[in-house]
Write a protein that binds this DNA or RNA. Structure first.
Lengths: 133, 133
DNA sequence: GCTTGACCCTGTAGTGACTACAGGGTGCAG
DNA sequence: CTGCACCCTGTAGTCACTACAGGGTCAAGC
């Protein structure tokens, strides 16, 4: 007798929402499970493994499209590792760019706050910076 | 005779899309302009100033809700500056948190890539890290 | 067996900030 | 006049969820 999971149990085991699990099934990322006599979804350990993979990859910031690709690669053990490598490297490049953008943004806001003298809007350096010159 | 702008001209002047300009009008962020006899929107310099403000604030990462609040503050020159200040500070806190999150993510991906030895999926450290233990 | 509350189901729509498309009208240079 | 760029409205799509409506199922407790 193989152990099955309800959708709530599967969601809890993977720190996902029930609705998210149903969403992943709808978009084809997670295979449809068998159903109980009451029409409840009955997930297996394989579903648990797959969903864990998905959530972990999402936690690492991969898009669902990328997750789909990673799953495809993982499903065939003979695939070359370099495609995974390349995806991770591309993703790292994205992350580096986002960090740089955020740092530039932080610098600019800090500058504006540094000029802020506490008064009325008429004197406000931040509002002034947003307004056309 | 006051100068007016077509939607295309306004969009170009503010580095926005035409569709975005219409979107802002629909959500009430940008006031509806007069129309030409051909039913084309005829924007004024005031619209240009307001849209410039909006785009600039978006560039700084403020949400549209925050932009709406900033516009409200800017519209009354007698408002106290501290509300603007507080919004900018909150935003800075958000940015700091995002940077920290991205850095943690980068560290983790770097670790995984560092362990990557180039082989098949069966040996892949990244796939291994994503798969349940 | 009945009740009740937690959980499940499907279908649909909403979030935020855009973006794209369909189908049709306007303006103007050539 | 023609052709092309631009305009219009209305609707739907993107991404990754998230929420809600209305109804069914399950199981513990009485």
């Amino acid at each position: 007798m193989t152990h099955t999971y309800s959708i709530g149990a599967l969601a809890e085991a993977t720190d996902a929402k029930v609705e998210t699990v149903r969403y992943y099934e709808r978009i084809g990322l997670l295979p449809e499970p068998e159903r109980t006599s009451g029409n409840y979804r009955a997930y297996t350990g394989d579903h648990l493994a797959r969903l864990s993979f998905i959530r972990r990859a999402r936690d690492l910031g991969f898009t669902l499209g990328q997750v789909r690709a990673l799953l495809g690669l993982a499903d065939n053990k003979n695939n070359d590792c370099c495609a995974v490598d390349a995806m991770a490297r591309d993703h790292l490049t994205d992350i580096d760019r986002k960090i740089a953008d955020l740092k530039a943004l932080r610098r600019e806001l800090n500058d504006l706050l540094g000029q802020c003298k506490q008064g009325t809007i008429a004197d406000c350096r931040i509002i002034g910076a947003l307004s056309p010159r």
